[in-house]
Structures are given as C-alpha cells and as structure tokens.
Design a protein around this nucleic acid. Sequence first.
DNA 1: TCATCCTACTGAAACGTTTCATGAATGAAG
DNA 2: CTTCATTCATGAAACGTTTCAGTAGGATGA
Lengths: 341, 341
Amino acid sequence: MVTTSIKEVARHAGVSVGTVSNVLNRPELVAEPTRQRVVASIDALGFVRNESARALRAGRSRTVGLVVLDVANPFFTDIARGAEDVADANDMVVTLCNSAEDLGRETRHLAHLEEQRVRGVLITPVDTGSTRLDQLVHRGIPLVLVDRGSPQADRCSVAVDDVLGGRLAVEHLVATGHQRIAFVGGPMSIPQVSDRLAGASGAVEGTPTDLLTIETSSLSVQGGRDAGEQLARLAVGRRPTGVFCANDLVALGLLQEMTRGGIQVPADVAIVGYDDIEYAAAAAVPLSSVRQPREQLGRAAAELLFDEINGSADHRHQHLVFEPDLVVRDSSRLPARATKR
Amino acid sequence: MVTTSIKEVARHAGVSVGTVSNVLNRPELVAEPTRQRVVASIDALGFVRNESARALRAGRSRTVGLVVLDVANPFFTDIARGAEDVADANDMVVTLCNSAEDLGRETRHLAHLEEQRVRGVLITPVDTGSTRLDQLVHRGIPLVLVDRGSPQADRCSVAVDDVLGGRLAVEHLVATGHQRIAFVGGPMSIPQVSDRLAGASGAVEGTPTDLLTIETSSLSVQGGRDAGEQLARLAVGRRPTGVFCANDLVALGLLQEMTRGGIQVPADVAIVGYDDIEYAAAAAVPLSSVRQPREQLGRAAAELLFDEINGSADHRHQHLVFEPDLVVRDSSRLPARATKR
DNA sequence: TCATCCTACTGAAACGTTTCATGAATGAAG
DNA sequence: CTTCATTCATGAAACGTTTCAGTAGGATGA
C-alpha cells in the first residue's frame, strides 16, 4: 500500500508542509497561485489525508458512534439515515455499530469507539442499566439515549410516546364501533409493550368496551400465529372484533392465522399493528399500523448530540418525546358495503 | 473529555512508556510483578488506548470497510455477520457503510475509508464500472467484490450462482407437473434478473413446458401485483400454473393479487420466489424460495480479503461462486388431497 | 576470575498531521 | 528614506503510540 504524505506533496509543489496543511484546512491564508500549485501536486500524487494523524494531533476525531439493536430493522435504519443527515451537515461521520441485542457485542463496540476517540455516541442500549454507559458519560463522552432507558439528568434522550401510540390504535378501533377488543403482545417486561398496553387501556376507559389481553412470548410472526389460534377458538359471540397488536410481525402472524381459519379481515376481525414496517402495506390485507417518526428521531438525537459536543458549556440535557401517528389501511377499515369498483 | 495517555500510566506505575506499551502488546517481555503494577495503574487511571496514535505509528489501521447497497436488507446483514465473524478472529474490526444504492454516498464512504487507512474493503458496488474502485486497487488497497461485478484479474470476488438458482426453481415447477410456467421479474438490465431467467430457460429446455416472461419495472411488491393482474386476466386454459419470481417481494405482490382475484395458491397457481427473506415463510401462504448462502458469502469474502492482506506476496485472486438451494413451502407444494390433519 | 548470555527495562526516534511563533517581502503612510 | 502594516510562507514542536538499539545487572560456563 503506497501512501503519499503531506511532506512529499510539499516537496513536489516546492513549498513547506505547513503551507500544504493550510491549503487543506485554511485555504484563505494561502495565495491563489500557490494554492493551485499545491492542489495540482495533490492530484498528481494522489494524496489522501491521513485521518489518524489528523485526529491524533487534534486530540479528537470527526466521528460519532451509533449503536443499534438490529441493523436489519428499518426502525434503526431510518434513525441512522436521520442521524447521518445531521452529521453530514456538521462535517462529521457516523460509524454504525450493530449490537444485535448482545451485551458482549455492544461492549466491544463501545470499547472500540472509545479507542477511536469518537466525539459522541448515540445508542439504544441492550441493557438500560448497564454501567458501561455511565462509564462513558463519566469520561466526558457525550451520549444520547435513543428510544430506551429512562430519562437521566446527565444525558439526553429521545423517544416515541408508546402510550400515545397504543391509545391512538385502540381509539380508532373504538371509534369504528368495536366493543370487544384484544391487545396482543409480549413479553410485558419490554417497556414498549407495557406502554402500548397502557395506552390501549386508557382508550377504553369510560367506554363500554371490553379489553382482553393475550400475552405472547415474543414479538414475532409465530407469536401472532399462536395468539390467532387462541382467538379462533373463541365462540363468535365472545371473540373480539378488533385486535391491536404490539408490533407488525405479531399482526402479520395473526392475520395469517385468521385467514387460514376462514375468519375475514376486517369484516370479522379488524387488526391494527405497530411500527408500519415495509411489509405492513404489502400484507395479504394491507395492515393498519402505528407509525413512528423514525427519521425525525434520528435527526433529533444527532442534533442533541452535536449541541452537547459543540457548546458543552451551556448545553442543557433534554428528553424529547415524539408522537406517533396512525396509518389506517384495509385491515381495520369499515367494510364499504355500497361501494362499487 | 479527559484522556489519560500511556505517559501518565508510566509515571503512575514508576516505569517507562516503553514498558507500558510492552504490557499492552507483548506482555511476555515484561516481568510479572511489573506487569501487574502497570495493569493496576491502567485500571486506576481508566486508561484507554488511542487507536489513532497506534494506527499512525503502525502505518496501518485495524479496520476493514464493508460497503453495502442497503443495510436494511437481510441479505447484506447476513453477509455482514459472516464478515464480522472472520474479522473478529483476525483481531480486526469491520466498519459497516451503507451506500443506499447512491453513488455519491458510496464515493464519500470510500473516501473516508481511505482516509482512515483501512486495510481492505469488501464492497457491493452501486456501479460495477466505477473507476473509484480501480483507483483503490491501484493504490494497493485489497478489495473483494461481493455479489456484483464481473470477475477481474486484479481483485477477488464472491457471488452466488443465479443461473443455477433460476434453474432449481423452475426444475422444481417442471417436476411437480407444471406445463405452463411464467418468469416474473425485471428490469432485465439487472444481471441477477437476467441470470435467473437464463436458468429458468435452461430448465424448460428439452421439455414440453412453455415459459412465458413477464417483465416488471422493479423488483418490488407493486411489480408483483401488476404482473399478477396481467396473469389473472388470462383465460384459465392459457394461464401459467406455475410462476417463478425474480425475488420474494415480487412473489409476495403476486401472491396477494392472486388471493384477491380468488385464484388459489398453490392449487391454481404455484409460486416460487427468490432470496428467502424473513417474511417469505410468514406470508399468507408460506412461500417457496431460493435461498442464498448469505452468511457463508460474507465469511468467504472476508477470508479472501484477509488472505490478501496478510500474505500479499503469494496471494492469488480468486472468484468464488456459491450454490443456492431451494426451500419448498406451501406455495408450490402439490395439494395433498388425501391427507388428514 | 573473566567472558558470555539472558532478562528486564529504558530512552529516543518515528509515524503524518496541525498550529503557532517567526521572518521575509511588499506596499502604504509619513 | 524610514516606519509600520499586511500578506505569505516557513520550520519546528506537539499529539500518543510502537519499536528498536542500548544498558544494567545477574546468572552461567570455563
């Protein structure tokens, strides 16, 4: 691997290394003819800046880390996109790290980020109580919690209001006339699940609507299928006519099981999911779902981070909460009886 | 941000910086009591290695870049997982970059990787003819092409045999008795699509089977729906009874349109997709699909890369081609007429 | 006893930048 | 003609490591 250094560029252009550096970083300090000569030499030699040397001298890098639970999940991909946008605008680079919900991997990534002297970290931690994060904060590395972990005084956080999301979904079911509604999701130990259930409960309060809870062992298609089987076994008169699922995978599994059992969606059972994943709209019956402002979440997180990085003096830690909204599709639409094609 | 350097550790432990460095990198050269003293100081001061300084001095970093077309695509996530495994074993780190099929983003990522002096790059390029890659190779940075770009003498590549994949799918349809088969996918300018079609053509050659081609404008659910509409309009006697789709999204769209039109899958039309995405098994009718050895692809790519990095002298560029296999599910299963539950 | 070899450690150079005090050249003002 | 700014460019120090030639002090062998 042949590498050209600033020194060789300097020699080639007949100037000092300081001048080359100035051309790169503060071109306004360099006379135009000189500048052009140096630029020409850079091109001729194929010079590429050595970021390590730069970072070493500067004492800080130009990267921030983004550690997510699952890179394959569109939720995090969209967050990453938002964060990258903001980083770009600040002449920074985002290093994307996938913890895959594995504490060991998360720890290794954080260690490597520290060794790289990243300017800050955006993270959805595997374990919200991890002391690894406190360590980072303690070392003075700005940190923003994304969609997990309770607000703490010494760091910023961004999140989406899951209680509101649950409420929106179930209010919609109530409004379209359902009197027996089920919440399907689990395990309840996941804060997102219990928050969404709390919202659902809130929505039926004061109405004559029944809310049945079916806890699944995981937020997966299989979990939805299992719950669907349970529902299908109920007598028609006791079966919920509206179901709110804690996420879209569960909803898809449920939908599949309903179809298999000859139960019509939405005529017999209306379904609302959560997350609005790409496949929600592409399901056998397009799925109503609660959509989170994912990209906005990433942007906001990055902005908080850069605010802390740049103006560390007067930075105030904040805890932003965003509002989700409901996307209504066929799976919960009132059957349009008198409509022709 | 407070940072402790090796110098302070040395002072704290009462040794020279060289000794601290040895404790870190070649502990066998250090007497045990000294080593323990230094380790204690490191812990006490919360020392974290400065990777920039290390890389600068060493003249090379410990990272390789992996540039993918879409981080959200499980195909690439699995490749990443495979590559990371291999990197881990070599004490290297993978930097994951998402080009999102955007040439500008790809270029920026590559530039940044170069500035970081990565040891090598694994890439599925946006534009296979890009001179940016030649530049990298020319600068002596090892490069492995992943699943795109024709084999070149100056770099390794790994790929999956798409012709074989197409053949497997259609041979299966032929074997289960279908005499009118359709290939659905497009645009044909994508090599993967035309290769899969070529395999499909090969499979019907010499058989009395008809192969109809329906070109879609994109490999999306919508593309599948549009094709499905076309198929549904055909008279039953002329309609293909088996369909091979160029990917699973198309297959899902097609499946959805069939269901909507009252055409039974697989009784009236059998469907085979490609990629075996997570949702394939979770579709309304679980989808048969051609599965690619994704993680293995990532492993192989990384192994080729490290081979080139480590033994640059006697490294021979290779072009590996992996074989996909067919996963048969309900969507193409012969209806089991006499089977009870 | 001396020569030789080991072991454990030291001290300084080097990596490629950025930054800053310094200096040379030019032109303007008096 | 001197003085003073202003504009450009220079050269060296510094960043935190790793590496390598040295060296001190035993231990070993003759």
